[in-house]
Amino acid sequence: MVNVEYLIVQIIVVIMAAPLVNGIIKKTKALSQKRKGAPVLQLYYDLFKLFKKSTVVSDTTSWIFKAAPYIVFTASLVASLLVPVTTMIDSVWYAGDLILMVYLFALGRFFMMLAGLDAASTFGGMGSSREAMISSLIEPSILVTLMTVGLTAKSTSSYQIMEFMKGVDAPLIRPVYLLTFIALLIITIAETARIPVDDPSTHLELTMVHEAMLLEYSGRSLALMELGASIKQLTFITLLANIFIPHDQFIFISGAGAVLISILIYLIKVIFVSILIAVAEVSTVKLRLFSIPNLAALAFILSFIGFMQHFVLGR
């Protein structure tokens, strides 16, 4: 019943590729600033080192603080299982759909926000409070975007949407897909704590959101949190890459070779989308916290116009 091959391929690709995205974005940013930058694989080294380090835990914290990294990481990983990196293998579509994916991320976020409040530190509370605001504003856009795309494919399961998109030629020149693509790109930036919503590279209390919640973490707990965040980032990028830029219809061979080629093309697309995000990050500045609603509204309106174009006005 459970497609074991799929699970193995998916987990390996996701865990291996997730830190790569961070590396590529950082490298692109560095090159644009005429810097050499850290190696692309830097996050792998960091994670590996963090796993071996001892941890410091605040004495005010409870079991929530210790459980949160595992829950965040697991929720991200399970959510990423619902978004196949390749449609060459039959996915576990019957286990969950995109709505479940959104609520799995909500589970991770819930515990991350609680962990922020657990240490009784002001920074943690600040991060949680801001995250609560951003997530509440961005959530309607996510659902409207995913539902609009899903409605064109008559399914909320990402596997079936991707299967459907194989039959659509050049999706990105159709208004509904172009608008939802841009909306999902904005959502990806907001959900993964990137400029212009959050700045992942500073620890300045005026700006930080995601980092503030993680401030008390160290060692392997921190590693799990970071890995969970990068898996979440990759999952959104996978959605962008595999739904709007379908590629599997061009592979004419079958068997293990096809899967391998498909994954390779997938990785190229991921690199492309990562560079796109990096460009967005380089060319904008961090928004004031209270300008974020405008960005969220922009994403919502784009996807809503896409919906109106396709379902109310007709094509």
Partner: peptide, 26 residues
């Protein structure tokens, strides 16, 4: 659908507040 999503996220925010402020911290 948007309202449902927003109410879910706001409810999560609200219960993080309820649980986090009353049960966690000092």
């Amino acid at each position: 659908a948007a309202a449902l999503a927003m109410s879910g996220a706001l409810a999560a925010a609200c219960f993080v507040k309820l649980f986090g402020i009353s049960f966690l911290g000092k």
